[in-house]
Amino acid sequence: MTDPNPLYGDACEVCSTYDVFPESALRDGAYGITAGYRCPNCGHVWTCGWQIVPGRAIPPEPGTDPRIFHPQVNAQVHEQAAIARARKHLSRGDSA
């Protein structure tokens, strides 16, 4: 069976551009990622959480080179990954 979404593509909610691929991603535990996107048409930036699909390429971790990694995408990926970690800890009853 062919993977219908081999690169964790998403659609822009602002201009409805399809097949926007993540610029970077951080692992969210053993089974998930938080991916960061920037629309090539309108410049909108967003994140999305995905369950890791075996065999599917995981986007690179955010980097510091602004020619490759957009600073706003990096910031949102790190922020959403931190929020996801906090939710997991709080749901287990751990103190923050």
Rank of each mutant, 00 (worst) to 15 (best):
M1R: 08
M1T: 09
T2P: 10
D3L: 07
N5C: 10
G9T: 15
G9H: 15
D10C: 11
D10F: 04
D10Y: 02
D10W: 04
C12M: 13
S16D: 13
S16W: 12
T17P: 06
V20I: 11
F21D: 08
F21N: 08
F21T: 14
E23S: 14
S24M: 14
R27D: 09
D28S: 12
D28G: 06
G29V: 02
A30G: 05
I33T: 06
A35W: 00
G36R: 06
G36W: 01
Y37M: 04
R38E: 11
C39M: 05
P40G: 10
C42E: 04
G43D: 05
G43S: 04
H44P: 01
H44I: 01
T47P: 01
C48M: 14
C48L: 11
C48I: 09
G49P: 02
Q51F: 03
V53W: 02
G55A: 09
G55P: 10
R56K: 14
A57S: 08
I58G: 06
I58L: 14
I58W: 04
G63A: 14
T64P: 00
P66Q: 05
R67H: 08
I68P: 06
I68Y: 09
F69V: 15
Q72R: 15
Q76N: 12
V77S: 10
V77C: 08
E79A: 15
E79F: 11
I83Y: 06
A84E: 11
A86F: 11
R87K: 12
R87Y: 02
R87P: 00
H89Q: 13
H89G: 13
H89I: 03
H89F: 04
L90K: 04
L90M: 02
R92D: 00
G93D: 03
G93T: 02
D94H: 03
S95M: 01
S95A: 01
A96G: 00
A96F: 01
